[in-house]
């Protein structure tokens, strides 16, 4: 499975003017950096509420651009019944975020339908 769902991200890239899609990718990049930092800080401080709130925002941002794998990891972190170790999940978030960004940037460079 790719980091990015081509149906969602591809549709955005083809339906929006290129500059709008590029702006979305940059905004997503900013969000990832900020939210991942908040998530890690909450893990380090044992702040369960802050951890889940950051995970919720990450899941929303990821879903909006079709970053499915990142969204799944974030949703696991949001679920208080899931026994997964928050430190491990925080690492996974970083990993998935970086892969999603790479694929989105490539899509911004070569949107579907562009020659």
């Amino acid at each position: 499975m790719n980091a990015i769902d081509p149906e969602i991200a591809g549709q955005l890239a083809s339906e929006l003017p290129r500059e709008d899609f590029v702006r979305i990718v940059r905004t997503f990049e900013d969000d990832l950096g900020r939210l991942a930092r908040l998530l890690e800080a909450a893990v380090a401080a044992g702040d369960e509420e802050g951890y889940r709130r950051s995970a919720h925002s990450l899941a929303g941002a990821a879903a909006a651009v079709g970053a499915r794998r990142l969204e799944q990891v974030a949703r696991i972190a949001m679920d208080h019944r899931n026994p997964a170790d928050p430190r491990v999940l925080a690492l996974q978030v970083r990993q998935e975020a970086s892969e999603a960004l790479a694929e989105l940037s490539a899509l911004a460079e070569h949107p579907p339908g562009a020659s």
């Binding site: 955005l12 709008d20 702006r23 979305i24 905004t27 997503f28 929303g60 909006a64």
Partner: peptide, 16 residues
């Protein structure tokens, strides 16, 4: 919307 990515996606679609 408090998550900028989601607001940006919605805004871009509405502007089109």
């Amino acid at each position: 919307e408090d998550t900028p990515t989601q607001a940006e996606v919605a805004g871009a679609l509405l502007r089109t």
